[in-house]
Deep mutational scan, measured.
Amino acid sequence: MGSVRTNRYSIVSSEEDGMKLATMAVANGFGNGKSKVHTRQQCRSRFVKKDGHCNVQFINVGEKGQRYLADIFTTCVDIRWRWMLVIFCLAFVLSWLFFGCVFWLIALLHGDLDTDYKDDDDKSKVSKACVSEVNSFTAAFLFSIETQTTIGYGFRCVTDECPIAVFMVVFQSIVGCIIDAFIIGAVMAKMAKPKKRNETLVFSHNAVIAMRDGKLCLMWRVGNLRKSHLVEAHVRAQLLKSRITSEGEYIPLDQIDINVGFDSGIDRIFLVSPITIVHEIDEDSPLYDLSKQDIDNADFEIVVILEGMVEATAMTTQCRSSYLANEILWGHRYEPVLFEEKHYYKVDYSRFHKTYEVPNTPLCSARDLAEKKYILSNANSFCYENEVALTSKEEEEDSENGVPESTSTDSPPGIDLHNQASVPLEPRPLRRESEIGSRR
């Protein structure tokens, strides 16, 4: 089982795998120059863009038009607004034209077009017409509009002379109601789609790998820009990579689940303020055997998904993003964004995407760390350097704002901070800030 798991979770494809794949392509008759073999020097295209759209195009789909027309309502909801407006206008105009032609044909076959009612006051002739005051196609078209929109100006009306005319008036009224219901329903469904809710759900630009509770963890940050909550919010993550099976089958995008606390339930989050999602790199993680150097040379993509129900409509929305291997910062942490004021908490989104480097973060893999092949620094050293990194950030910001350097908390000259780390230190809580992250 261990060997199978290692093969499945191998992220960085070796040169031997690339040569094996190329040999397979030639042997199977696919070596026509169009096949692409992804190596370390040639990274694959992003499968999920940063804005959440999937970078996929469908080609050679059989009976595409028929399949889309069979699900016309979903098609109308998914198309762009400009095409929705075109369909909206065409549906009414074509129905008016169709029934206008029908009423014109009825008048033509009944002989109503030969009668001039402007110079004739004989009401008996008017009563013999199928539709009064309809003696041309324009008049028939206007009567069709008046019937379907129930305008009723009063000059044109159907008589009991022709039952077919009466039937067409009733039929057009029913068709008009159906068109109204369909168009209004599609427009309302399109307006109520929770897709735009994703514009106020954000992911951090970069993911980070750092120590948390004595273990290497992959972390990324999510935030909600609205005050309205995302009900039943939960997160998922998958690692996408290519691999070759033991039988020699090439899988271009193998999807591997990344555990973010599904078993323990901590994948469900209360997204009021930005939260750091934590994936513990343990023996079940696809990143277990990867060191910093392996991450730098790897070719994979981590897709992160945030799902929840919109509070206003109770409709489920899904926000997506992805991180390539070069977008994962090893040995970094996110800057705090949640600050405790006197009577409330304040979230500073200008710090949302910012990170700071944490010294002495192990550069080895989580496996080597678990097997004690890498000796961690003293816990006080880690905490102290973590505090120094934050303090230096604040000093830089104070210097930019014009604060005198004498007010900063610099260490005395001639003292090495790293050498001082081995000395037991008193706890130094942050002056006014605390970061709330997901705790395992």
Results as ranks from 00 to 15, higher is better:
Ser3Val: 03
Ser3Met: 05
Val4Arg: 08
Thr6Glu: 15
Asn7Tyr: 04
Arg8Ala: 10
Ser10Ala: 05
Val12His: 12
Glu16Thr: 07
Asp17Ala: 07
Gly18Glu: 05
Met19Phe: 03
Leu21Gly: 11
Leu21Cys: 06
Leu21Met: 03
Ala22Gly: 13
Thr23Trp: 07
Thr23Gln: 10
Ala25Met: 08
Val26Phe: 03
Val26Ile: 08
Gly31Asn: 08
Lys34Gln: 11
Lys34Ser: 13
Lys34Ile: 10
Lys36Ile: 11
Lys36Met: 10
Lys36Thr: 14
Lys36Val: 14
Val37Ser: 13
Cys43Thr: 14
Cys43Ser: 06
Arg46Asp: 01
Val48Tyr: 10
Lys49Ile: 05
Lys50Met: 02
Lys50Leu: 02
Asp51Lys: 12
Gly52Trp: 00
His53Arg: 05
Cys54Lys: 15
Phe58Val: 10
Phe58Ala: 13
Ile59Met: 10
Ile59Arg: 14
Asn60Gly: 10
Val61Arg: 14
Gly62Trp: 06
Gly62Cys: 10
Glu63Thr: 12
Gln66Arg: 15
Gln66Thr: 12
Arg67Thr: 04
Tyr68Arg: 09
Ala70Arg: 15
Ala70His: 08
Asp71Ile: 06
Ile72Cys: 14
Phe73Gly: 14
Phe73Met: 11
Phe73Ile: 08
Thr74Leu: 07
Thr74Glu: 14
Thr74Ile: 06
Thr75Asp: 07
Cys76Leu: 13
Cys76Asp: 05
Cys76Val: 10
Cys76Lys: 12
Ile79Val: 10
Arg80His: 06
Arg82Ser: 05
Arg82His: 03
Trp83Arg: 08
Met84Cys: 05
Met84Glu: 05
Cys89His: 03
Ala91Gly: 13
Val93Ala: 05
Val93Gln: 01
Leu94Cys: 05
Leu94Ile: 07
Trp96Phe: 04
Phe98Arg: 00
Phe98Met: 14
Phe99His: 01
Cys101Val: 09
Cys101Pro: 00
Ile106Lys: 01
Ala107Pro: 01
Leu108Phe: 08
Leu109Ile: 12
His110Leu: 01
Gly111Leu: 03
Asp112Pro: 01
Leu113Met: 10
Asp114His: 09
Tyr117His: 01
Lys118Glu: 00
Lys118Val: 02
Asp120Val: 00
Asp120Tyr: 00
Asp121Met: 15
Asp121Gly: 14
Lys125Ser: 14
Val126Phe: 15
Val126Cys: 05
Ser127Arg: 05
Ser127Ala: 15
Lys128Pro: 08
Ala129Cys: 03
Val131Ala: 01
Val131Glu: 02
Asn135Cys: 04
Asn135Pro: 02
Ala139Tyr: 00
Leu142Asn: 02
Phe143Cys: 02
Ile145Leu: 04
Glu146Val: 01
Glu146Phe: 02
Glu146Leu: 02
Thr147Met: 03
Ile151Leu: 09
Ile151Ser: 07
Gly152Pro: 07
Phe155Gly: 14
Arg156Gln: 03
Asp160Pro: 03
Glu161Cys: 02
Glu161Asp: 01
Ile164Gln: 14
Ile164Ala: 08
Ile164Val: 09
Ile164Gly: 08
Val166Thr: 03
Val166Asn: 01
Val170Gln: 00
Val170Lys: 01
Gln172Thr: 03
Ile174Asp: 00
Val175Ile: 12
Val175Tyr: 15
Cys177Gln: 10
Ala181Met: 15
Ala181Val: 15
Phe182Val: 04
Ile184Gln: 04
Ile184Ala: 04
Gly185Ser: 13
Gly185Ala: 15
Ala186Arg: 14
Ala186Pro: 04
Val187His: 07
Lys190Asp: 05
Lys190Ile: 09
Lys190Asn: 07
Met191Asp: 05
Ala192Asn: 07
Lys193Gln: 13
Pro194Asn: 05
Lys195Gly: 09
Lys195Ala: 13
Lys195Asn: 08
Lys195Tyr: 06
Lys196Ile: 11
Glu199Cys: 12
Glu199Ala: 14
Glu199Lys: 10
Thr200Ser: 14
Leu201Val: 07
Val202Cys: 11
Phe203Ile: 05
Phe203Ala: 03
Ser204Lys: 00
Ser204Leu: 01
His205Tyr: 07
Ala207Asp: 00
Val208Glu: 00
Arg212Thr: 03
Arg212Tyr: 05
Arg212Pro: 01
Asp213Ser: 13
Gly214Cys: 09
Gly214Met: 08
Lys215Glu: 03
Lys215Trp: 03
Leu216Gln: 02
Leu216Ile: 02
Leu218Asp: 01
Leu218Asn: 00
Met219His: 04
Leu225Val: 13
Leu225Lys: 14
Leu225Glu: 08
Arg226Tyr: 06
Arg226Thr: 04
Ser228Arg: 13
Ser228Asp: 11
His229Val: 14
Ala233Ser: 11
His234Gly: 11
Val235His: 02
Arg236Asp: 03
Ala237Gln: 00
Gln238Gly: 09
Gln238Trp: 10
Gln238Met: 11
Leu239Cys: 09
Leu239Gly: 00
Lys241Ala: 05
Lys241Tyr: 07
Lys241Leu: 04
Ser242Phe: 14
Ser242Leu: 14
Ser246Cys: 06
Ser246Arg: 08
Glu247Gly: 06
Glu247His: 12
Gly248Lys: 13
Tyr250Cys: 09
Ile251Asp: 13
Leu253Arg: 09
Leu253Ile: 08
Asp254Thr: 04
Gln255Val: 12
Ile256Thr: 08
Ile256Gly: 07
Asp257Met: 09
Asp257Tyr: 07
Asn259His: 09
Val260Arg: 00
Val260Met: 03
Phe262Cys: 09
Ser264Ile: 10
Gly265Thr: 14
Ile266Asp: 14
Ile266Phe: 11
Ile266Pro: 11
Asp267Leu: 03
Ile269Lys: 11
Phe270Met: 07
Leu271Phe: 10
Val272Asp: 14
Val272Pro: 07
Ser273Thr: 10
Pro274Val: 06
Pro274Gln: 04
Pro274Met: 07
Pro274Asn: 03
Ile275Gly: 10
Thr276Trp: 00
Ile277Met: 11
His279Ile: 00
His279Phe: 00
Glu280Arg: 13
Ile281Leu: 06
Ile281Ala: 01
Asp284Asn: 15
Ser285Thr: 00
Ser285Glu: 01
Ser285Val: 01
Tyr288Leu: 00
Tyr288His: 02
Tyr288Asn: 00
Leu290Ser: 07
Lys292Ile: 02
Gln293Trp: 08
Asp294Asn: 04
Ile295Phe: 11
Asp296Ile: 06
Ala298Tyr: 03
Asp299Cys: 04
Glu301Asn: 01
Glu301Asp: 01
Ile302Ser: 00
Val304Leu: 12
Leu306Met: 04
Glu307Gly: 08
Val310Lys: 05
Glu311Leu: 05
Ala314Cys: 14
Ala314Thr: 07
Ala314Pro: 06
Thr317Leu: 09
Thr317Val: 14
Thr317Trp: 11
Gln318His: 07
Cys319Gln: 05
Ser321Lys: 12
Ser321His: 14
Ser321Thr: 11
Tyr323Asp: 02
Tyr323His: 01
Tyr323Trp: 09
Ala325Arg: 09
Asn326Phe: 03
Leu329Asn: 04
Trp330Cys: 01
His332Ala: 09
Glu335Arg: 02
Pro336Lys: 15
Leu338Gln: 08
Glu341Pro: 02
Lys342Thr: 06
Lys342Arg: 05
His343Ser: 10
Tyr344Asp: 14
Tyr345Pro: 08
Lys346Phe: 04
Tyr349Gln: 12
Arg351Val: 14
Phe352Ala: 01
Phe352Asn: 02
Thr355Lys: 01
Tyr356Leu: 15
Glu357Cys: 06
Glu357Ile: 06
Val358Lys: 00
Val358Tyr: 07
Pro359Glu: 15
Asn360Ala: 11
Asn360Glu: 15
Thr361Phe: 14
Thr361Gln: 06
Leu363Glu: 13
Leu363Thr: 03
Cys364Pro: 01
Cys364Asp: 02
Ser365Asn: 02
Arg367Thr: 01
Asp368Cys: 05
Leu369Glu: 01
Lys373Gln: 14
Ile375Met: 09
Ile375Pro: 11
Ser377His: 08
Asn378Ile: 03
Asn378Arg: 14
Asn378Cys: 07
Ala379Gly: 11
Ala379Lys: 04
Ala379Asp: 13
Ala379Arg: 11
Asn380Ser: 12
Ser381Gly: 12
Phe382Met: 14
Cys383Arg: 14
Glu385Ile: 05
Glu385Ser: 04
Asn386Pro: 04
Glu387Cys: 03
Ser392Pro: 13
Glu394Lys: 06
Glu395His: 07
Glu395Ser: 09
Glu396Asp: 12
Glu397Ala: 08
Glu400Arg: 08
Gly402Ser: 13
Gly402Met: 15
Val403Ile: 13
Val403Cys: 08
Pro404Tyr: 11
Glu405Phe: 06
Thr407Asp: 14
Asp410His: 06
Asp410Ser: 06
Asp410Pro: 10
Asp410Arg: 05
Pro412Ser: 10
Pro413Asp: 12
Ile415Asp: 15
Ile415Ala: 11
Leu417Lys: 07
Asn419Glu: 14
Asn419Val: 12
Gln420Thr: 11
Ala421Ser: 06
Ser422Lys: 07
Val423Ile: 09
Leu425Gln: 14
Leu425Ala: 12
Pro427Arg: 03
Pro427Gln: 04
Arg432Phe: 13
Arg432His: 12
Glu433Phe: 08
Glu433Arg: 07
Glu435Ser: 14
Ile436Pro: 09
